[in-house]
Amino acid sequence: MRRLALFVIGLAVIGLGVFWTLSAPERLPADALAGIEGDAEKGARVFYAAGCASCHAAPEAEGDEKLILAGGMRFPSPFGTFIAPNISPDETHGIGDWTAQELADAMIHGTSPEGAHYYPAFPYGSYGRLATHPEGLKEIAHLHAFLQTLPPSSAPNAAHEVGFPFNIRRGLGLWKLVFANEGWVSSVPGDDAQLERGRTLVEALGHCGECHTPRNAVGAPLNGQWLAGAANPSGEGRIPGIDEMNWSARDIAYYLETGFTPDFDSAGGHMAAVIENTSQLPEEDRAAIAAYLKAVSQP
Protein backbone atom coordinates (compact mmCIF):
# COMPACT_ATOMS: atom_id res chain seq x y z
CA MET A 1 0.00 0.00 0.00
CA ARG A 2 2.74 2.36 1.00
CA ARG A 3 4.74 1.53 -2.09
CA LEU A 4 1.74 2.25 -4.24
CA ALA A 5 1.24 5.62 -2.52
CA LEU A 6 4.88 6.48 -3.08
CA PHE A 7 4.55 5.41 -6.69
CA VAL A 8 1.53 7.65 -7.20
CA ILE A 9 3.25 10.57 -5.53
CA GLY A 10 6.29 9.91 -7.66
CA LEU A 11 4.17 10.00 -10.80
CA ALA A 12 2.51 13.20 -9.65
CA VAL A 13 5.89 14.82 -9.06
CA ILE A 14 7.08 13.77 -12.50
CA GLY A 15 3.78 15.01 -13.94
CA LEU A 16 4.22 18.33 -12.20
CA GLY A 17 7.78 18.52 -13.45
CA VAL A 18 6.67 17.84 -17.01
CA PHE A 19 3.89 20.40 -16.64
CA TRP A 20 6.34 22.91 -15.25
CA THR A 21 8.82 22.36 -18.06
CA LEU A 22 6.25 22.33 -20.84
CA SER A 23 4.43 25.36 -19.51
CA ALA A 24 7.58 27.49 -19.04
CA PRO A 25 7.29 30.94 -20.63
CA GLU A 26 9.32 31.65 -23.75
CA ARG A 27 11.38 34.76 -24.46
CA LEU A 28 13.39 36.18 -27.32
CA PRO A 29 17.18 35.77 -27.22
CA ALA A 30 18.76 38.51 -25.09
CA ASP A 31 20.35 40.23 -28.08
CA ALA A 32 17.30 40.00 -30.37
CA LEU A 33 16.88 43.78 -30.56
CA ALA A 34 20.56 44.67 -30.39
CA GLY A 35 21.36 47.59 -32.67
CA ILE A 36 17.72 48.34 -33.48
CA GLU A 37 16.76 51.98 -32.90
CA GLY A 38 13.02 52.70 -32.53
CA ASP A 39 11.58 55.57 -34.59
CA ALA A 40 8.39 57.03 -33.08
CA GLU A 41 7.15 58.41 -36.38
CA LYS A 42 7.27 54.99 -38.01
CA GLY A 43 5.75 53.58 -34.82
CA ALA A 44 2.53 55.55 -35.35
CA ARG A 45 1.82 53.50 -38.47
CA VAL A 46 2.44 50.26 -36.56
CA PHE A 47 0.15 51.49 -33.79
CA TYR A 48 -2.79 52.13 -36.13
CA ALA A 49 -2.17 48.93 -38.08
CA ALA A 50 -2.18 46.93 -34.83
CA GLY A 51 -5.19 48.66 -33.26
CA CYS A 52 -3.76 48.85 -29.72
CA ALA A 53 -6.07 51.74 -28.82
CA SER A 54 -9.21 49.74 -29.70
CA CYS A 55 -8.55 47.63 -26.61
CA HIS A 56 -6.35 49.75 -24.35
CA ALA A 57 -8.06 53.17 -24.48
CA ALA A 58 -10.51 53.90 -21.66
CA PRO A 59 -13.96 52.42 -22.43
CA GLU A 60 -15.72 55.71 -23.23
CA ALA A 61 -12.78 57.49 -24.87
CA GLU A 62 -13.54 59.47 -28.05
CA GLY A 63 -11.22 61.18 -30.52
CA ASP A 64 -7.83 62.12 -29.09
CA GLU A 65 -8.69 60.56 -25.72
CA LYS A 66 -8.07 57.25 -27.48
CA LEU A 67 -4.36 58.01 -27.28
CA ILE A 68 -4.49 57.72 -23.48
CA LEU A 69 -4.00 53.98 -23.09
CA ALA A 70 -5.39 53.82 -19.57
CA GLY A 71 -7.00 50.38 -19.92
CA GLY A 72 -10.29 49.34 -18.31
CA MET A 73 -12.11 47.98 -21.35
CA ARG A 74 -13.86 44.67 -20.63
CA PHE A 75 -13.68 41.58 -22.86
CA PRO A 76 -16.29 38.94 -22.02
CA SER A 77 -15.42 35.40 -23.15
CA PRO A 78 -16.60 31.87 -22.36
CA PHE A 79 -13.77 31.71 -19.78
CA GLY A 80 -14.58 34.90 -17.89
CA THR A 81 -14.12 38.60 -18.40
CA PHE A 82 -10.67 40.04 -19.17
CA ILE A 83 -9.94 43.67 -18.43
CA ALA A 84 -7.37 45.53 -20.51
CA PRO A 85 -4.43 46.87 -18.49
CA ASN A 86 -2.93 50.36 -18.54
CA ILE A 87 -0.17 50.45 -21.20
CA SER A 88 0.38 54.21 -21.11
CA PRO A 89 3.96 55.39 -20.48
CA ASP A 90 3.25 55.94 -16.76
CA GLU A 91 6.16 54.29 -14.91
CA THR A 92 4.07 52.94 -12.03
CA HIS A 93 0.71 52.07 -13.52
CA GLY A 94 1.60 51.69 -17.16
CA ILE A 95 4.57 50.33 -19.08
CA GLY A 96 6.75 53.46 -19.04
CA ASP A 97 9.67 51.50 -17.62
CA TRP A 98 9.52 48.68 -20.15
CA THR A 99 12.27 48.14 -22.70
CA ALA A 100 11.52 47.47 -26.36
CA GLN A 101 12.68 43.92 -25.76
CA GLU A 102 10.09 43.44 -23.00
CA LEU A 103 7.37 44.74 -25.31
CA ALA A 104 8.58 42.32 -27.99
CA ASP A 105 8.44 39.38 -25.54
CA ALA A 106 4.87 40.37 -24.64
CA MET A 107 3.71 40.78 -28.24
CA ILE A 108 5.50 37.76 -29.68
CA HIS A 109 5.55 35.18 -26.88
CA GLY A 110 2.82 36.51 -24.59
CA THR A 111 5.39 36.59 -21.80
CA SER A 112 5.49 39.37 -19.17
CA PRO A 113 8.71 40.97 -17.88
CA GLU A 114 8.26 38.86 -14.71
CA GLY A 115 7.95 35.72 -16.79
CA ALA A 116 4.18 35.16 -16.47
CA HIS A 117 1.97 34.09 -19.38
CA TYR A 118 -0.55 36.52 -20.80
CA TYR A 119 -4.04 35.43 -21.77
CA PRO A 120 -4.62 35.20 -25.49
CA ALA A 121 -7.29 37.93 -25.16
CA PHE A 122 -4.16 40.01 -25.82
CA PRO A 123 -3.76 38.95 -29.46
CA TYR A 124 -0.10 37.87 -29.33
CA GLY A 125 -1.09 34.79 -31.31
CA SER A 126 -1.39 37.18 -34.27
CA TYR A 127 1.31 39.70 -33.38
CA GLY A 128 3.69 36.79 -32.75
CA ARG A 129 3.87 36.17 -36.50
CA LEU A 130 6.12 39.24 -36.62
CA ALA A 131 8.88 37.05 -35.17
CA THR A 132 9.47 35.45 -38.55
CA HIS A 133 9.24 38.70 -40.52
CA PRO A 134 12.58 40.29 -41.42
CA GLU A 135 11.31 43.72 -40.30
CA GLY A 136 9.12 42.40 -37.48
CA LEU A 137 11.28 43.26 -34.49
CA LYS A 138 12.01 46.68 -35.98
CA GLU A 139 8.28 47.33 -36.21
CA ILE A 140 7.95 46.55 -32.50
CA ALA A 141 10.88 48.82 -31.62
CA HIS A 142 9.23 51.66 -33.59
CA LEU A 143 5.95 50.99 -31.81
CA HIS A 144 7.74 51.05 -28.45
CA ALA A 145 9.22 54.47 -29.30
CA PHE A 146 5.78 55.76 -30.35
CA LEU A 147 4.03 54.48 -27.21
CA GLN A 148 6.55 56.47 -25.13
CA THR A 149 5.31 59.70 -26.75
CA LEU A 150 1.67 59.19 -25.64
CA PRO A 151 0.19 60.82 -22.51
CA PRO A 152 0.65 58.85 -19.26
CA SER A 153 -2.32 57.73 -17.15
CA SER A 154 -2.24 56.76 -13.48
CA ALA A 155 -5.31 54.51 -13.71
CA PRO A 156 -4.64 51.30 -11.72
CA ASN A 157 -5.10 47.90 -13.39
CA ALA A 158 -8.20 45.89 -12.54
CA ALA A 159 -8.01 42.13 -11.92
CA HIS A 160 -9.53 39.85 -14.57
CA GLU A 161 -12.82 38.21 -13.59
CA VAL A 162 -11.80 34.68 -14.51
CA GLY A 163 -12.60 31.54 -12.50
CA PHE A 164 -10.68 28.31 -11.81
CA PRO A 165 -8.83 26.76 -13.62
CA PHE A 166 -8.47 29.58 -16.12
CA ASN A 167 -7.12 31.90 -13.43
CA ILE A 168 -3.91 29.88 -13.22
CA ARG A 169 -1.60 31.61 -15.66
CA ARG A 170 0.94 28.80 -15.65
CA GLY A 171 -1.58 26.52 -17.32
CA LEU A 172 -1.64 28.91 -20.29
CA GLY A 173 1.83 27.60 -21.12
CA LEU A 174 0.27 24.35 -22.30
CA TRP A 175 -2.35 26.21 -24.30
CA LYS A 176 0.38 28.20 -25.98
CA LEU A 177 2.42 25.06 -26.62
CA VAL A 178 -0.45 23.55 -28.55
CA PHE A 179 -1.94 26.60 -30.25
CA ALA A 180 0.31 29.63 -30.41
CA ASN A 181 3.00 30.57 -32.93
CA GLU A 182 1.64 28.61 -35.81
CA GLY A 183 3.33 30.90 -38.30
CA TRP A 184 1.74 32.43 -41.40
CA VAL A 185 -1.57 30.99 -42.53
CA SER A 186 -1.27 31.81 -46.23
CA SER A 187 1.78 31.61 -48.43
CA VAL A 188 2.46 34.52 -50.76
CA PRO A 189 4.81 34.63 -53.75
CA GLY A 190 8.17 35.93 -52.51
CA ASP A 191 8.37 38.66 -55.13
CA ASP A 192 4.94 40.20 -54.49
CA ALA A 193 5.69 43.04 -52.06
CA GLN A 194 2.06 44.21 -51.90
CA LEU A 195 0.67 40.78 -51.01
CA GLU A 196 3.46 40.29 -48.50
CA ARG A 197 2.59 43.62 -46.84
CA GLY A 198 -1.08 42.67 -46.94
CA ARG A 199 -0.34 39.41 -45.19
CA THR A 200 1.64 41.19 -42.45
CA LEU A 201 -1.24 43.62 -41.97
CA VAL A 202 -4.05 41.03 -41.96
CA GLU A 203 -2.43 38.00 -40.27
CA ALA A 204 -0.12 39.76 -37.79
CA LEU A 205 -0.63 43.47 -37.04
CA GLY A 206 -4.30 43.90 -37.93
CA HIS A 207 -5.15 40.63 -36.13
CA CYS A 208 -8.18 40.29 -38.42
CA GLY A 209 -8.32 36.53 -37.74
CA GLU A 210 -8.95 37.13 -34.03
CA CYS A 211 -12.51 38.14 -34.90
CA HIS A 212 -13.13 36.72 -38.36
CA THR A 213 -11.82 33.16 -37.79
CA PRO A 214 -13.90 30.72 -35.71
CA ARG A 215 -12.45 29.19 -32.52
CA ASN A 216 -12.52 25.75 -30.93
CA ALA A 217 -13.88 24.94 -27.46
CA VAL A 218 -10.76 26.23 -25.71
CA GLY A 219 -10.68 29.46 -27.66
CA ALA A 220 -7.96 28.61 -30.16
CA PRO A 221 -8.44 29.80 -33.76
CA LEU A 222 -9.42 27.15 -36.32
CA ASN A 223 -7.02 28.24 -39.02
CA GLY A 224 -8.43 25.64 -41.40
CA GLN A 225 -11.41 28.00 -41.56
CA TRP A 226 -9.26 31.10 -41.85
CA LEU A 227 -11.39 34.31 -41.98
CA ALA A 228 -14.53 32.23 -42.65
CA GLY A 229 -16.67 34.13 -40.10
CA ALA A 230 -17.30 33.44 -36.42
CA ALA A 231 -19.59 33.77 -33.47
CA ASN A 232 -19.49 37.23 -31.90
CA PRO A 233 -17.79 36.94 -28.49
CA SER A 234 -20.12 39.62 -27.12
CA GLY A 235 -22.95 37.17 -27.81
CA GLU A 236 -25.04 39.13 -30.31
CA GLY A 237 -25.17 38.26 -33.99
CA ARG A 238 -22.21 36.97 -35.99
CA ILE A 239 -18.99 38.29 -37.44
CA PRO A 240 -19.14 37.86 -41.22
CA GLY A 241 -16.64 35.84 -43.23
CA ILE A 242 -14.13 37.80 -45.33
CA ASP A 243 -12.67 34.80 -47.12
CA GLU A 244 -14.97 35.01 -50.12
CA MET A 245 -15.07 38.73 -50.80
CA ASN A 246 -16.79 39.53 -54.08
CA TRP A 247 -16.22 43.26 -53.55
CA SER A 248 -13.58 44.84 -55.77
CA ALA A 249 -10.20 45.59 -54.19
CA ARG A 250 -11.08 49.28 -54.50
CA ASP A 251 -14.35 48.70 -52.59
CA ILE A 252 -12.55 46.84 -49.80
CA ALA A 253 -9.97 49.61 -49.45
CA TYR A 254 -12.74 52.24 -49.41
CA TYR A 255 -14.57 50.31 -46.68
CA LEU A 256 -11.40 50.29 -44.58
CA GLU A 257 -11.11 54.04 -45.13
CA THR A 258 -14.71 55.18 -44.59
CA GLY A 259 -16.73 52.23 -43.32
CA PHE A 260 -18.97 52.36 -46.40
CA THR A 261 -19.84 49.07 -48.09
CA PRO A 262 -20.31 49.05 -51.88
CA ASP A 263 -24.04 49.65 -51.18
CA PHE A 264 -23.21 52.54 -48.88
CA ASP A 265 -24.41 50.77 -45.83
CA SER A 266 -22.04 51.60 -43.01
CA ALA A 267 -19.93 49.24 -40.90
CA GLY A 268 -21.00 48.66 -37.32
CA GLY A 269 -20.14 46.39 -34.42
CA HIS A 270 -16.47 46.05 -33.54
CA MET A 271 -15.56 46.72 -37.16
CA ALA A 272 -16.36 50.41 -36.66
CA ALA A 273 -13.47 50.57 -34.16
CA VAL A 274 -11.18 48.69 -36.57
CA ILE A 275 -11.99 51.23 -39.28
CA GLU A 276 -11.09 54.10 -36.94
CA ASN A 277 -7.59 52.61 -37.11
CA THR A 278 -7.42 51.52 -40.74
CA SER A 279 -8.67 54.98 -41.81
CA GLN A 280 -5.42 56.39 -40.34
CA LEU A 281 -3.18 54.13 -42.43
CA PRO A 282 -1.57 55.22 -45.68
CA GLU A 283 -3.64 54.40 -48.77
CA GLU A 284 -1.08 51.80 -49.87
CA ASP A 285 -1.64 49.77 -46.68
CA ARG A 286 -5.40 49.62 -47.25
CA ALA A 287 -4.72 48.58 -50.85
CA ALA A 288 -2.37 45.85 -49.58
CA ILE A 289 -5.03 44.50 -47.21
CA ALA A 290 -7.54 44.51 -50.07
CA ALA A 291 -5.10 42.69 -52.37
CA TYR A 292 -4.54 40.03 -49.70
CA LEU A 293 -8.28 39.51 -49.12
CA LYS A 294 -8.86 39.21 -52.86
CA ALA A 295 -6.03 36.67 -53.12
CA VAL A 296 -7.47 34.61 -50.24
CA SER A 297 -10.91 34.77 -51.89
CA GLN A 298 -9.76 33.09 -55.11
CA PRO A 299 -11.36 29.69 -55.36
Binding site: E236, G259, S266, A267, G268, G269, A272, E276
Partner: peptide, 17 residues
Protein backbone atom coordinates in the same frame (compact mmCIF):
# COMPACT_ATOMS: atom_id res chain seq x y z
CA UNK B 1 -20.70 61.22 -42.28
CA UNK B 2 -19.33 57.68 -42.40
CA UNK B 3 -18.05 57.96 -38.86
CA UNK B 4 -21.42 59.08 -37.57
CA UNK B 5 -23.27 56.26 -39.37
CA UNK B 6 -20.74 53.77 -37.99
CA UNK B 7 -20.77 55.36 -34.54
CA UNK B 8 -24.42 54.42 -34.14
CA UNK B 9 -24.21 51.02 -35.85
CA UNK B 10 -21.26 50.14 -33.60
CA UNK B 11 -23.39 50.19 -30.45
CA UNK B 12 -26.97 49.79 -31.58
CA UNK B 13 -27.13 47.46 -34.55
CA UNK B 14 -26.44 43.73 -34.54
CA UNK B 15 -23.65 42.43 -36.79
CA UNK B 16 -24.49 39.52 -39.07
CA UNK B 17 -23.15 37.27 -41.79
Amino acid sequence: VGKSCGGCHEDYRRSDD
